[in-house]
Amino acid sequence: MIVAADAGNILTWIVWVGAAFACLASGVAVVTFRNPFYSALALIGNLGSLAVLYLLLSAEFVAAAQVLVYAGAVMVMFLFVIAYIGHRFETPWAGGPTWQTVGAVAAAAAIFIEVVVAVGLKAGGRLSHSEKVDRAFGSPAEIGRLFLTDHLLAFEITSIVLLVAAIGGVILGSHSRAAEEVSA
């Protein structure tokens, strides 16, 4: 943890702290806000801070994709739907059986702790040492090369998944329109 105090390092730390704080805060915000619109906005913030973190980890392409695809397309869609549905306050924040709440908190806490412990135990001392990477690491060229050589199958299957989702979306949309015409 104690590293050479040069300017690059300190700057990195400062950026990291800021992005980390924003990430955590927006995460909590997403889960706790009552208004889904605000939650969605908080999620956009979360995605943005994550993009910053990705940049710090030399994953430039992923960061860009995150902002463009996730924050740009997916969240816009979310906001569309939330706006379309309108503001419905009658949904309670949480509730249901007490054991559900207690169990939920316990399970989430357990998972968090276990992930930390597991990774900590298994990784041993190796986590402190990171490989040196060159400038091509995380670049679009590198990602593209990997997609088209080592992980071609994943690439193709992912495109099929997207196609299926698109079809599903169309079907879901058309079904409800037909049902509405019948019931109207």
Binding site: M1, G8, N9, T12, W13, V15, W16, A20, C23, L24, G27, V28, V30, V31, L53, L56, L57, S58, T91, P92, W93, A94, G95, G96, Q100, T101, G103, A104, V105, A107, A108, A109, I111, F112, V115, V116, V119, G120, A123, L127, S128, S130, V133
Partner: peptide, 28 residues
């Protein structure tokens, strides 16, 4: 690498995962 080590990022990831799980299990 510059800045915090990988374990710090992993801590954030674990926290995000836990918070997300809590949201899924609690919100209606």
């Amino acid at each position: 690498m510059l800045g915090p080590g990988v374990s710090w990022y992993l801590g954030i990831a674990a926290f995000l995962f836990g918070i997300g799980a809590l949201g899924v299990l609690l919100r209606r």
